[in-house]
């Protein structure tokens, strides 16, 4: 039986892990290889490397440091940040990444999803969805969310986009619920459950991770994986303890 996955997400700039508050004042946390290995040793099932500098610079994540991480790690690595073409994705996969994650470029040009799936197989293609509840109660997607000054609210409904992304070849969907992001009050379970109902490929919960109970709740609404960033980096959440708690609650995980 398949385990539920715990994914550690690292924000990276020029090969250094950085941590920001509301997209500003990024603080250096250390070398990406060292921090990725620390999460691996702690029991992370997968690492997501998000190049936060790529999109604003009009480039894609840098294969040089992605390669350094991929050579060192022996768990799956997914890379996100400014990937707009098959050639860019290939350079990252050839550097050792296992999957690429696309967000704004997929919204701008949905054909990109199928192009990547045709080139590498859909298991390589992750579509990240940034979603927020609007005043009328409807969940809709946001683009350019990596940069607060450029973020745009789109008319596209989140659930419609999840269905479309799968149709086009997404092999996995990461649903980042922006209203709960950074709160550490738990994942947006209502939205996750609604997404689950339209998502037949693996679904990753993102936004709001704080305690083990939050992960348990996300898995009870049938998310396949849950992603954490801030709570892992500041040490308030420890993956080993988290997994033992989940195991104790009857959720199947990989214990290391």
């Amino acid at each position: 039986m398949l385990s539920r996955r715990i994914i550690a997400c690292l924000d990276v700039r020029d090969g250094r892990v950085v941590k920001g508050v509301r997209f500003e004042g990024h603080r250096d946390m250390g070398d990406v290889v060292e921090l990725a290995r620390r999460h691996r040793d702690a029991g992370a099932d997968e690492i997501v490397l998000y190049d936060i500098a790529a999109s604003p610079r009009g480039t894609c994540a840098d294969p040089a440091w992605v390669g350094r991480v991929a050579r060192d790690l022996d768990i799956p690595v997914c890379v996100a940040g400014g990937i707009r073409t098959v050639a860019q994705a290939r350079s990252l996969l050839n550097a050792g990444a296992d999957k690429v994650s696309i967000n704004t470029p997929a919204l701008e040009r949905p054909d990109l999803i199928a192009e990547l799936a045709d080139a590498f197989g859909r298991q390589c293609v992750v579509v990240g969805v940034d979603s927020r509840r609007d005043g009328d109660g409807e969940w809709r997607v946001r683009s350019h969310s990596g940069d607060a000054s450029r973020m745009r609210a789109l008319p596209r409904r989140t659930l419609d986009w999840i269905a479309e992304a799968q149709e086009r070849g997404a092999g996995e969907v990461v649903l980042n619920c922006m209203d709960s992001d950074g709160t550490r009050d738990g994942f947006d379970l209502g939205q996750l459950a609604a997404a689950r109902a339209v998502c037949a490929v693996p679904l990753v919960a993102s936004g709001g991770a704080g305690r083990a109970a939050h992960f348990e709740a996300a898995f009870r609404v049938d998310a396949d994986a849950a992603l954490a960033a801030g709570a892992l980096h500041d040490g308030s959440l420890e993956i080993g303890a988290l997994k033992r708690a989940l195991d104790g609650a009857g959720i199947r995980v990989r214990l290391t």
Binding site: S3, I75, P76, E172, A200
Partner: peptide, 30 residues
């Protein structure tokens, strides 16, 4: 059951094989 099958799952050996020497039954692989 989601397809693609993506993640860590238990592997059970059938008989003995040198490929799984030292890997206990039920070990999870990606």
């Amino acid at each position: 059951v989601r397809v693609p099958h993506m993640g860590w799952n238990a592997v059970a050996t059938v008989g003995s094989t040198p490929l799984f020497d030292g890997i206990p039954p039920g070990t999870q692989m990606y």
